[in-house]
């Protein structure tokens, strides 16, 4: 592990809250999320759709419309708080210190400009002194680095001339043009086939080793997280419900929602004739978050009404170092339960 406990984390998010006002009411999209991330480490954020993963990452990027969004808490990047920064200051950081890769690269690339031109422009925004030739060379190097064959030919092609996997590589090249210290990848492989997904995940891991950047990888796929993340943050209903190293969360999950996620995915191992164990019900609407623990209407262990339906459980440390969980169940009971809950999944212990 390159993890250096002594140095302060490069990214430190504290009690982040993001609210949108809409015609239907206030959306509490992120409700008190805290985590830290060192350079060179990958944090996987998992959760079902609508759990606030993208909103969290967009807040770090400063991409929310300030007129409709209320953001409180702190987002410290290299010690500097991003909450409340002006648009101009944020623009200087974006692309240089923190960059983002989206699920749909087509929507993030301009259809009428060549890929090369977009790469060059991205570079020159942050390197005012760089000549065209330098920027072009950098772009060609990056295209080559992300595994795009014949970069000088591809340089002058338009986004629609690339396949899905190649487009995602272009996005990665673009995000790495300025050597960002933090890279946020929001479902970068969800639209891709497994064989291409595997290539992209390998590429991200290689690049991380080379550039020593911090990566936030957002996904709904626990399998992806288990393969590439160092740490995992499980989100539910806009809150963090479990946080720990990938080994802690995969081998000793302590939150009933994490158990549910693990138990509901079919695996390539284990007995295929055994039924999956779904989580009952549906994810909540973030306009009407259930009282107390947001998961209580779906939780098989909920103690109702007290305390589960009444008090929001805090994300508290469990015995293992750095492992935190937000659940009212007593720790011994959690530990004695999860082995049964996820036994059939067969995670190697």
């Amino acid at each position: 592990m390159t993890h250096d406990a002594a140095s302060p984390p490069y990214l430190q998010v504290d009690d982040l809250r993001v609210r949108f006002s809409t015609a239907d009411g206030e959306v509490r999209a992120v409700d008190g999320v805290s985590f830290g991330l060192q350079r060179g480490r990958t944090l996987g954020i998992v959760g079902e759709s609508g759990s606030g993963k993208s909103v969290t990452s967009l807040a770090v990027m400063g991409l929310h419309d300030p007129a409709r969004t209320r953001i409180t808490g702190a987002i410290k990047l290299g010690g500097r708080d991003l909450v409340g920064l002006s648009d101009g200051e944020m623009r200087k950081l974006r692309g240089r210190d923190v960059a983002m890769i989206f699920q749909d690269p087509l929507s993030a690339l301009h259809p009428f400009y060549t890929v090369g031109r977009q790469l060059v422009e991205g570079y020159r925004t942050h390197h005012a002194g760089a000549s065209k030739a330098q920027a072009r060379q950098r772009a060609l190097d990056m295209l080559d680095r992300v595994g795009i064959p014949q970069p000088d030919r591809r340089f002058s092609q338009y986004p629609h001339e690339f396949s899905g996997g190649m487009r995602q590589r272009v996005m990665i090249a673009m995000s790495l043009m300025n050597d960002p210290a933090l890279l946020i990848a929001d479902e970068p492989t969800t639209a891709l086939d497994v064989t291409v997904q595997a290539q992209i995940l390998d590429l991200l891991a290689d690049l991380q080793r080379e550039f020593h950047s911090a990566i936030i990888l957002i996904t709904h796929d626990l399998g992806v997280v288990s393969q590439v993340a160092d740490e995992v943050l499980v989100m539910y209903g806009g809150r963090a419900v479990e946080h720990g190293t990938v080994a802690q969360v995969m081998r000793g999950p302590q939150h009933p929602y994490t158990w549910g996620l693990l138990a509901s995915i079919p695996s390539l191992h284990g007995d295929p004739e055994v039924d999956l164990k779904p989580i009952k019900g549906n994810p909540p609407s973030l306009i009407n978050v259930p009282s107390g623990c947001a998961f209580h209407p779906r939780c098989a262990y909920a103690m109702k009404p007290e305390p589960c339906a009444a008090q929001v459980p805090q994300l508290l440390a469990v015995q293992a170092d750095g492992h935190r969980v937000a659940c009212h169940l007593p720790e011994p009971q959690r530990i004695s339960t999860y082995t049964d809950e996820i036994a059939h999944v067969g995670v190697a212990q």
Partner: peptide
């Protein structure tokens, strides 16, 4: 190849 590309939770840590 297809099977080997599947990110499977059960294969965690292998």
């Amino acid at each position: 190849a297809l099977l080997s590309a599947v990110p499977d939770v059960a294969a965690f840590g292998e």
